[in-house]
Design a protein around this nucleic acid. Structure first.
Lengths: 240, 240
DNA sequence: CCAATCCGGTGAACATCGTTAACGGCAGGG
DNA sequence: CCCTGCCGTTAACGATGTTCACCGGATTGG
């Protein structure tokens, strides 16, 4: 059984190479340049061989998306590790700035993962990927260590409470899977609501920068981002 | 000269048909289905004939983008016309809700126009298209008729003031082109800053819905959108 | 009124793409 | 030792963007 490793290793190795080459093409030449034949060419292999590893081109792209999320999560985790454990606000800044920095550095990967129309696969829990978990972990630490300016449950719009309640539950289960124990008392509806609002503004800021869709030419987007994040962090009640 | 009309009309007619067919394909079958040969096929014509009208496929797509912006502007203008002239806040709601409704109804067109990585064409003034002008017109009416909760110029982050100043100037020139006269006194830096923040949150909310990237499955996104917009409108100091 | 010109179309061709099918070698296990 | 899978190849099909040569009818100039 241990001798199956040689063949298995070769298989997982070439699979790894397929994904790597695909992402290199994506980053260096854009979405339209990542093509089965181009990948095969780069690997000095023929295109049909790739079908031994993926059922179709779309399957490969899907896998690449997953890999991108995982790598983004790793990068964010590394940045988080550089922040003192007690500096909760610093961790929030780190993960937000890290997300923006990654998006600006990899616009093609960002638009592939975060700006592709969802086609009916609404059954998924989008925050159940490694990237979402990093954000979630930071949020959990914030909720356990800080007192936030969170709307009372009664102030949350009534039509949203059902969705937010299931969201809260999925958050807690995801967190326990990650080994974090967050008592439900610390995650009221208002907290879930605030997390959504936070994400809307962070995502909007980053996406607009990546897509060059600010209403005017911004000479240096970083100060703009920083001021937006500072305002956002202050609004949810985080102070240094 | 007037007899050139017959040929010209035929030319502009087929050009119109090209764009229409392209957009029909985009809406009904997605981005990847809009193809030179598919357009030609639908028009009972040969693909190379399209090169009499556009230099390349990308040029056609570019034109389609422009058309989409124009149509979106028309739709928003119609919605605006249904709001009483004195109801400034209602106009803001109308244009925001109209933008979301359009985006949700045409996700492919939205992602083509508003979620395609900007490739160095940063020389453009993105708010100089018909769509941007509609927003701008509403903003101008708000600024002339209402007293807003706008940060003082001194509270605007220093690094942003230069960009915001040029933004303000371009806004005023664009407005005068549209026939609207907005005295510079009514458009301080804080107002320009607020407009950017407003756009960030509106765009983020809409894009996340279109791309299905909320952190949890939202059963009905409309109440979520409405509450976000209500909060946003209230924050900038607009009351009914 | 006739000839020259241009404009918008066709057809064939090329390179590229995703995908499928038939084939072949090479390793591992009975 | 043979046999069975795995993993690669070659050949082919249909589709794409794009170019080129050609051509017919309307437009136009003398």
């Amino acid at each position: 059984m241990t001798e199956a490793t040689r063949r298995d290793r070769s298989r997982v190795d070439t699979d790894q190479q397929i994904r790597t080459v695909a992402r290199t093409l994506l980053v260096s030449q854009g979405r339209q340049a990542v093509t089965l034949r181009a990948i095969a060419r780069e690997m000095r292999i023929t295109a049909p061989a790739l079908y031994r590893y993926y059922d179709s081109f779309d399957d490969l792209i899907q896998q690449v998306c997953t890999d991108i999320c995982a790598d983004l999560a790793v990068e964010l985790t590394e940045r988080l590790a550089a922040v003192p454990a007690g500096d909760t606000t610093g961790q929030v800044f780190a993960v937000c700035r890290g997300f923006r920095a990654w998006a600006v550095r990899h616009p093609q990967e960002f638009s592939l993962v975060f700006a592709t129309p969802a086609v009916g696969q609404s059954g998924e829990h989008p925050s159940d990927d490694p990237f979402g978990r990093v954000f979630l972990a930071v949020a959990a630490r914030v909720l356990t260590t800080r007192e936030l300016a969170i709307p009372a449950d009664g102030d949350v719009p009534a039509e949203l409470r059902a969705d937010l309640a299931t969201y809260r539950d999925s958050l807690i289960t995801t967190l326990t899977q990650t080994g974090i124990d967050l008592p439900a008392r610390l995650l009221p509806l208002g907290a879930a609501y605030t997390m959504v609002r936070f994400w809307v503004r962070l995502y909007g800021q980053v996406a607009l920068e990546v897509f060059g869709r600010f209403p005017f030419p911004v000479t240096d987007p970083e100060p703009l981002f920083d001021s937006m994040i500072a305002e956002l962090v202050a609004e949810v009640g985080l102070t240094r």
